[in-house]
Simulated scan of single mutants.
Amino acid sequence: MNSLKNSFQNLLYYPSAILGMLVVFLLVFTAIYAMIKIPYRDAIRLWRGGEEVWYQNPKFAPPAWINFFSSKKYAESFAVRTSDGTMTKEVTPGAEGTSTMSSSYTFDFSYDYYPQELILYLSSTYEEKQPFISVEWLTPDGRKIRIVNLAVSQKQTYRFSQDQKLKTKLRTDDVIPALFSDPETGRLIKGTYQLLITGAAFEPDSDINVEFVSHGQVYGL
């Protein structure tokens, strides 16, 4: 017992040894916390990954805190959805079991770099008649851009940058910069943007839900 006590006392003379022990204790604590916080099945699912797990994460994006050390700010990623109320949704019943839906999301864009991608993850419930939506984009300078009209399947993904018709409408292959720029000067426009979605369902129990994901240049905290 005395030898163990003497060993600890001797360690006090070596700050590097104390630091090493603290690192070991921190690693052990982190391992225990991870085992408690993340169940084994969830850990395996996250480790194996796949788009259904990591679809909100832009590829190769550094953490958002690098903006604190940069004079020019990188666009931050975000995701909102109608299912949890982070994106507004109003449903108005119509005649003979039909209904209309309106959804929107307003956000401030104050960055110096464009997002990488804008994506809509759409889901709907229906038996025979697919719901229909129309998507519009409002810019800070007052322009309204019709993005797409489409019938919504049960699970569907729409990527703004891959829409050939939108490229033709905007007269560019670079859709994302065009949506955030002055069409005359090509200058990035900072300010308040709004995504507007209106939809129609043609059956009594039919419904539409939307998730809007912006893949920025940075992600997370």
Score class of each variant (00 low, 15 high):
170 L>E: 10
197 I>F: 04
110 S>Q: 14
113 Y>K: 11
139 T>L: 06
178 A>S: 15
130 Q>N: 07
73 K>V: 02
144 K>V: 07
134 S>M: 12
187 R>E: 12
178 A>K: 06
176 I>T: 04
95 A>N: 05
171 R>V: 03
89 K>T: 09
182 D>T: 14
75 A>W: 01
139 T>S: 06
195 L>G: 00
119 I>S: 10
80 V>F: 07
187 R>F: 04
116 Q>V: 06
93 P>Y: 03
107 F>N: 09
110 S>P: 14
176 I>L: 10
151 A>W: 15
191 G>V: 09
98 T>M: 04
154 Q>V: 10
164 Q>H: 00
202 F>P: 05
154 Q>G: 12
197 I>V: 13
91 V>W: 00
159 R>Y: 09
134 S>Y: 08
131 P>V: 03
154 Q>C: 03
165 K>C: 06
163 D>V: 02
115 P>N: 10
153 S>P: 03
197 I>Q: 08
145 I>C: 08
110 S>D: 11
159 R>V: 05
185 T>C: 05
135 V>E: 04
128 E>T: 05
108 D>K: 12
89 K>G: 09
180 F>K: 03
124 S>H: 06
204 P>H: 14
197 I>G: 02
159 R>K: 04
134 S>D: 07
169 K>P: 01
109 F>V: 09
210 V>C: 11
136 E>Y: 15
107 F>E: 14
164 Q>I: 14
156 Q>T: 03
211 E>R: 12
66 I>R: 09
75 A>R: 04
133 I>Y: 06
174 D>I: 00
111 Y>A: 03
88 T>I: 04
77 S>W: 12
155 K>Q: 13
152 V>I: 10
194 Q>A: 07
91 V>M: 10
